[in-house]
Computed example of a mutant assay.
Amino acid sequence: MTKRAKEIDERAAAMGLVVEPLPYTIDRDTYTPALLALLSNLLVWGGSRVFYHLHGIGTNEWRIVSALGNHPGSTAAELCEVLGINKSIASKSVNALLSRGFIEQLGGPRGSRYLYLTPEGNILHDELMPIALRRQEILHESLDADEVAQLNRLLVRMLDSIDSMQQYEHDMLGTKPR
C-alpha cells in the first residue's frame, strides 16, 4: 500500500481512526472471491477500453453480442441468466446495441422481445472475436493445456454452487428466492 508520513497516522490515531492492521482479516491472495473479483475487474476494465477504442462499445455490450452469436432470438431475461448480469446492465447494453444498429428486437407473444444480431452486429462479433480469444490466450500463458482444462472444470463446478450461494444470500437478507 502507500507509504504515508508518520504524522498522518498520528493525526488519524488522534481522531480515533484505526491505524494498525486488524488481527483477523481476509488475505486477498488466499480468498477465492477476492481473486476471482480482481481478475474479473481487470478483464472487464481492459476489455472495455479496447472494445470501446475499436468500436465504441464496452465489455457488457460485447458479452450481449457474443451471447446472441450463440443464442440468437434470446430475450433480455434469458441473456441475464446466461451471462449472470442484472436486468439494468442488460437493459442499458441492449439499448446501446439497438441504437447503434448492432441488434434488432422482434415482438412476440405476451410482449416478449426476441433479440437478434443484425448484419452489422455479425461483423462486430467477427471483428471482436479474435481480440477476445487473444486475451484468453494471454491469460492462459502461464498454464499448460491440462491446467487450463482443470481450471475450466473447477470454475464450472464453482458455478454449480451458485444456487446455494443465492439461497444463503436470501437467508441473510430475509428474502424469498424468485
Rank of each mutant, 00 (worst) to 15 (best):
E20D: 13
D9M: 09
L139H: 02
D27Y: 11
L128C: 11
P109V: 09
R157F: 13
P177V: 04
G73T: 07
G111P: 01
N86C: 08
I64Y: 08
G121A: 07
L98K: 03
A5P: 06
T75K: 03
L79P: 00
Y116D: 02
L159M: 04
H53W: 06
H170L: 02
V18S: 04
D9G: 10
V148T: 14
E7Y: 02
T30L: 01
K3N: 13
S40G: 08
I162Q: 05
N122C: 09
N152V: 03
F51V: 02
T25A: 05
G73E: 11
H125T: 01
M1I: 15
I123P: 00
L151Y: 15
M172T: 14
T2I: 14
G47Y: 03
T30G: 03
N60A: 14
D27A: 13
N60I: 00
G69C: 05
E61K: 04
G107S: 13
T25Q: 09
E127D: 10
H140L: 12
T2W: 07
S164L: 10
N70M: 11
A34G: 11
I57G: 00
K6Y: 05
A12C: 02
S74W: 00
A13T: 09
L97P: 01
Q150G: 15
L143F: 15
T2Y: 06
F102N: 01
S142M: 12
G111H: 02
